[in-house]
Design a protein around this nucleic acid. Structure first.
Lengths: 127, 127
DNA sequence: AAAATATGAAACCATTTGGTTTCACTTTAG
DNA sequence: CTAAAGTGAAACCAAATGGTTTCATATTTT
């Protein structure tokens, strides 16, 4: 029953430099593992494992062609990242709201300041 | 001499769910560690370590106020993430260029296909 | 059919990561 | 001055991570 929820999310998937390079490489064209691993200083198996992690995060898809398995980029999951990021953009894009934020937090009284906030409610941008 | 290059970059820093929640919380206002850790199910020390990692990535700044150290969000480093992401946006925003990409990679001959590419040149989006 | 190619799975390993508890230090409050 | 509050650093730990080597299996090639 329980959905076999993926072990790796987009954030974790792109945290590794090698995996970001893999995405970059695959964005150019579809490729089988052997060819891909020629571009990296590690074993084919290691590359294969990184690909599996990317696949779990939905960032790459594969298809069998004869005896090879070709991997290709699937950028759609990156939209989650964009969405997460959009929340923070206001802090550098909108000077006005940023200033407002700053002034407010500095003009409040010491006691009770933090307790009044409604924080950590898992909403769109928390995770 | 050698710049003590930070151990954590933005990608790694935001890979952890707890750290993303920290950014979310701090985006509301500046806070001392003790108050922050009240919002998490782990020890103050653990939160403190996450904050240090975020600080290494430049995502939070702190300032001493009496005996407390207040942390605040510093969103600027997230621009690197936005920049990285912008490269991939074309794969979902621009249906035309995506299609072009797909057609090209599928119409080429088997042999020599991969060798012709100029890949992995560490450029703006590789890492 | 036999040899070569392409790949995933498994078993191992060293290092990193995310947490904990304990201790020392500084700054405020009584 | 003494106690309490706020923190960071250190020592420890179990689990996760990123690699490796070896082995089994499926598909081509000759």
């Amino acid at each position: 029953m329980a959905a076999p929820q993926p072990k790796y999310d987009v954030f974790q998937a792109i945290a590794d430099p090698t995996r970001r390079q893999l995405l970059s490489l695959l964005s150019e064209q579809e490729m089988p593992v052997t060819v891909i691993s020629d571009h990296f200083p590690m074993s084919r198996t290691a590359v294969s494992k990184h690909l599996r992690i990317l696949a779990e995060a939905g960032l790459v898809k594969d298809r069998k062609v004869g005896r090879e398995t070709r991997y290709r980029l699937e950028s759609e999951p990156l939209q989650e990242l964009k969405r997460w990021l959009s929340y923070y953009e206001r802090f550098w894009d909108n000077k006005l709201s940023m200033l407002k934020h700053y002034v407010e937090s500095d003009s409040t009284e010491e006691a009770e300041r933090y307790g009044k906030l409604e924080v950590m409610k898992p909403s769109h941008h928390n995770e």
